[in-house]
Design a protein around this nucleic acid. Structure first.
Lengths: 143, 143
DNA sequence: ACTGGAATTGGAATAATTCTTGATCTCATT
DNA sequence: AATGAGATCAAGAATTATTCCAATTCCAGT
């Protein structure tokens, strides 16, 4: 069990409020886990990790918190096929490369100045509000 | 409403076997629905449609058939966020634009010669095996 | 027609997520 | 410090999409 002081100190890394969302202990802890790990955990994985520090935490609360963070644009929800949703604190517009061999998910940035309309024939008048790009494959060591 | 003759003719368009998959009545019917409608139905929507012709059809069979078709590369499974999977007989490599206002899903083709690596910074050595591009937005009529 | 393997069916089971409800916390105001 | 309103949390029930399972049924090759 952690001391009150340790808990408060780590909590201080995250501000009291972000984007108008009150950062409660639970939300802070969950956000901190996403920031520190950066490995696109599922709600359940976040739950496991967070229980160390918040023993009374419930899975429902993890879902609530993750959803609140997503709604306020503080983190992003990422879906791979029909698997559990994963969560990501990287707010840059980016895609994901899922290494099928290791299971590791790499963030994939857009090249500077690149535009999706360079490669896609969008329908006439299409206004994009959200982009989800998911690649699956493997990382080859061969040169 | 289609005439019997049209129905039979359209059914005949589907061969006995595709890509090594035995085309049973159920698989034929399900495939035909995907081909004719081309509106990215869910398994349940396919089930509803197919029941007209195959009254004993079960939802489990629809899932089985769709999966068999997907496994044999005859159709593709498409996922939007956490919604039900949808199915698509368009085998060209393509993405999807989801019109949030009408719910319509448009296929989005790649521009000829375009390559994803033109716009994305992939991890070193990444070999792409599968691409899923999903855009969400609206269609504006304004010029 | 017979037979073995594949396919189908219907219902039960599963897994992820959401909902519900009551308890608890927070914060502004007194 | 007490109060009250509203937000948040916890626990478990409910929901939803999908998969599993066991018992038929179907079909291609003999």
């Amino acid at each position: 069990m952690l001391s009150k002081i340790t808990e408060v100190q780590s909590a201080l890394e995250v501000p009291e409020e972000i984007a108008g969302l009150r950062m409660t202990r639970q939300r802070q802890e969950i956000y901190r886990i996403l920031i520190e790990e950066r490995n696109h955990p599922t709600a359940n994985e976040v739950f496991m990790k967070a229980k160390d520090r918040l023993p009374n935490l419930s899975l429902a609360t993890v879902y609530n918190c993750l959803d609140a963070l997503v709604q306020h644009g503080i983190i992003r929800q990422v879906n791979f096929e029909r698997e559990s949703s994963r969560y990501c604190p990287n707010l840059r517009e980016h895609g994901h490369f899922h290494d099928a061999e290791t299971g590791v998910i790499h963030d994939v940035d857009f090249k500077p100045g690149a535009n999706l309309t360079d490669v896609l024939n969008l329908p006439q008048g299409a206004v994009i509000e959200d982009v989800e790009i998911t690649l699956r494959g493997k990382i080859s060591n061969l040169q």
